[in-house]
């Protein structure tokens, strides 16, 4: 079978690189071995069935989980060497489930994103304020900045957390299922925001996505996991093929190209339910 080699992710030197990464939980082997590179300036999607190790991989890439063997390099350095706030200046994470917050205004929440850039006793500098305002603008939240977090809609809240991540001015933005629990309109809203950010600022984005159509619309590169193993990785058109997806998801689905550069995933529901 024609599975793309992991090294061919992009033209640039990869920003994050995994080398022989293995993760264990206790005595059980949960992930690996994984070798891959996340290209700078690209949108990379991580996909795979439930339990395939997507969130575990994210945690390894952000340095939350220490690898059992192998290593994760961030810009050529082992990620373990980036500690504390230095890590917060490089990597911003948007988690799958957000904490419910009230009693804080949206702007106050976003201002937390400046924590990695500030000293313990330091007040907000002009640079902090500029970054906060820019993050609010990018997410279209300027007019809501004074609102209490509890008074926001689901989509607004998700954008607020995104703005917090952007206020960190990170080199890479990592998102764990950013569109789950949002209705279709908010899903589109968030995805177009991400696409625009990547296009306009060249921000590197790494996202776990469940919806294969969203992957096709959004991702430059795709990392496909199955049962804790790297199944395929590479440019989206080479990974997102009918053959590969059928094998990973074990479903009668097909990738249909509707126009040049436009594709969508069709699931044969009748066949699947039969």
């Amino acid at each position: 079978m024609n599975r793309p080699a992991p090294e061919q992710t992009g033209p640039d030197q990869p920003l994050i690189r995994c080398q022989g990464l293995n993760l264990r939980r206790g005595a059980t082997h949960v992930l690996g071995p994984i070798d891959l590179g996340i290209a700078q300036g690209a949108i990379t999607a991580i996909c795979g069935p439930n339990g395939s190790g997507k969130t575990t991989l994210l945690n390894a890439l952000t340095g939350v989980l220490a690898p059992h063997s192998g290593q994760v390099l961030f810009a050529g350095q082992p990620i373990g060497r980036l500690r504390g706030r230095a890590l917060g200046r490089q990597i911003a994470v948007l988690r799958q489930h957000q904490d419910s917050v009230s009693g804080l205004s949206l702007r106050e929440l976003v201002a937390f994103g400046r924590f990695p850039h500030r000293g313990l006793m330091q007040r907000q500098t002009a640079a902090d304020r500029a970054a906060i305002t820019a993050a609010l603008e990018m997410c279209g939240l300027e007019t809501l900045a004074g609102r209490d977090m509890a008074a926001l809609s689901g989509g607004e809240r998700q954008r607020a957390w995104l703005a917090l991540a952007l206020a960190q001015e990170p080199r890479v933005l990592i998102l764990d299922e950013p569109t789950s629990y949002l209705d279709v309109r908010y899903q589109v809203e968030i995805l177009s925001l991400l696409k625009g950010l990547n296009r306009d600022t060249g921000l590197t984005i790494l996202a776990v996505l469940h919806d294969l159509d969203q992957v096709l619309q959004l991702a430059d590169a795709v990392v496909l996991l199955r049962k804790g193993q790297l199944f395929a990785a590479g440019p989206a058109p080479r990974v997102m093929t009918t053959e590969i997806l059928r094998e990973v998801y074990d479903l009668p689905l097909s990738v249909e190209t509707t126009a040049p550069g436009r594709a969508s995933v069709r699931i044969d529901w009748l066949g699947a339910l039969a």
């Binding site: 952000t62 706030r85 917060g88 904490d99 937390f112 994103g113 924590f115």
Partner: peptide, 20 residues
């Protein structure tokens, strides 16, 4: 104070931002 502000939301957020 800066860490407390964030910790009142959650410990996880504080860790993600590089706090301890």
């Amino acid at each position: 104070v800066p860490m407390l502000d964030i910790a009142q939301v959650s410990d996880r957020l504080l860790a993600d931002l590089g706090g301890r």
